[in-house]
Simulated assay, not measured.
Amino acid sequence: MKNQWIEFISGKVTVKVSGKGVERFINVLIRNGLIVWNVKRHGTETITFTMRLKDALKIRHYARERECSISFLKRAGMPFLFKRLLKNSGFVGGALLFLLIIMFLSNVIWGIEIKGAKPATEYQIAKELDKMGVKIGKLQLFVDNVEGIQRKLTNNVGNLTWVGVELKGTTYHLQVVEKKDPEKPEQLAPRNLVAKKKAIIASMYIETGQKIVDINDHVEQGQLLVSGVIGKEGQTQQVAAIGEVWGETWYKSHVELPLETNFFVFNGQEKRKHSLIIGNLEIPIWGFGEPEFKEYETEKNVKKINFLKWELPISIGNETLRAREETTRTYSEEEAEKNALELAKNKIKSGLGEEAIIKDEKILHKELKDGKVILDIHFKIIENIAVGQPIPKETPE
């Protein structure tokens, strides 16, 4: 069976041969390696058959020797199709150009909509988008993806709590949630201030209420520090005690730090690859081959191609391969102790208020074991220990 695709690509013709001895003419063609098929007889002196285009160029020589007349009835295949396309190249070129223009315009930014932002915030967002190149008339392939735009806006525009970025066709839609202004202080009910933990009083600032303790007093958890009952006996009133009572508190921390740590760092080398993605097929178009470096991390960004409002199953893939090297960080025992102490401080601070300070630290136990420095540390902290507690109602006698 003949391969119809091969014959279509190379081209084929249907030939009509008339004259005496047409059968001998067919035999001559076959003996000389010319392939024919679909041979049909039309009367006693006429036959038709199909043959390859390249063989048809040789047939006239054999026809003159046999006193046969030949004519070509039908031409088919890629060469003739290409020839017809050349005759209509203006129309075909115009159609292709039109499609390319439509595809280009479908991937240009034509709109940016910002919802949920005040005018001042909207102006800030517009300026930041302009810096990133997200503006009307810019090709979408040359701007960050929506995740990158969202991340940069959140980092660079201070009064945003959250921003959602969505690309629909040729328009970016941004939904903004702004940070709320500080709420007005709530009206507090009458209350006392009590100690939230055991401490030695270091300093006090009382706005309203009657202080019960003094500097250097030792207090226990739950002990009354500032009373919300003020006035002379018989002429008292209840208020919301407000103030700060700073006390010296104590914490213990256990930390372990290895003397040697292995980790990866980027060395600045990178290789970029670009590809055309059609469905599940990825076709490299730039940056062929494997990188020269062995260890690397890959960052891939895929941008969809649009046609009018439709998203085509075609994407442009951009891949960045960043070289990395494994390095070993080695501490001396003294350096490890210093870094372990700093690590313990950060751990303690993470559980305290922003205004708390570390007054002093003391290493209770130090040990070098299994390639690690192990420390037990005692910290003295100055922090606000006052918390509000409702004034208990008096029970009638």
Score class of each variant (00 low, 15 high):
Ile6Gly: 08
Glu7Phe: 04
Phe8Gln: 11
Ser10Tyr: 14
Gly11Asp: 03
Val17Pro: 03
Ser18Asp: 11
Lys20Met: 02
Leu29Pro: 08
Leu29Tyr: 14
Ile30Arg: 05
Ile30Lys: 13
Asn32Phe: 05
Val36His: 15
Lys40Met: 06
Arg41Pro: 05
Ile47Asn: 11
Thr48Phe: 08
Leu53Asn: 10
Leu57Arg: 15
Ile59Tyr: 10
Ala63Ile: 09
Ser69Val: 14
Phe72His: 08
Phe72Asn: 12
Pro79Ala: 04
Leu81Ile: 00
Lys83Val: 10
Lys87Pro: 02
Val92Ser: 12
Phe104Gly: 13
Leu105Arg: 11
Ile109His: 10
Gly111Ile: 11
Ala117Asp: 12
Lys118Ser: 15
Lys118Asn: 03
Gly133Glu: 12
Lys138Cys: 10
Leu139Glu: 14
Gln140Phe: 01
Phe142Tyr: 03
Val143Asp: 07
Arg151Phe: 01
Leu153Met: 09
Leu160Asp: 06
Thr161Phe: 09
Thr161Arg: 09
Val165Thr: 01
Gly169Glu: 03
Thr170Arg: 08
Tyr172Pro: 00
Val177Ala: 09
Lys180Tyr: 07
Leu188Met: 08
Arg191Val: 04
Lys196Asn: 15
Ala202Met: 05
Ser203Ala: 04
Val213His: 11
Asp214Ala: 02
Val219Met: 08
Gln221Lys: 15
Leu224His: 10
Val226Phe: 07
Gln235Tyr: 14
Ala240Leu: 00
Ile242Asn: 14
Val245Gln: 08
Glu248Cys: 07
Val255Thr: 07
Leu257Met: 09
Thr261Ala: 05
Phe263Thr: 09
Phe266Arg: 11
Lys273Val: 02
Leu276Gly: 07
Ile277Gly: 12
Phe293Thr: 07
Glu297Thr: 05
Lys304Gly: 06
Asn306Asp: 06
Asn306Gly: 05
Phe307Asn: 06
Ile316Ala: 04
Glu326Arg: 12
Thr328Glu: 07
Arg329Gln: 11
Arg329Glu: 13
Thr330Pro: 00
Tyr331Trp: 07
Ala336Gly: 02
Ala336Cys: 00
Glu337Gly: 05
Lys349Thr: 10
Leu352Val: 09
Ala356Tyr: 06
Asp360Trp: 05
Lys362Val: 13
Ile363Asn: 10
His365Asp: 15
Lys369Asn: 02
Ile377Met: 05
Pro392Ile: 11
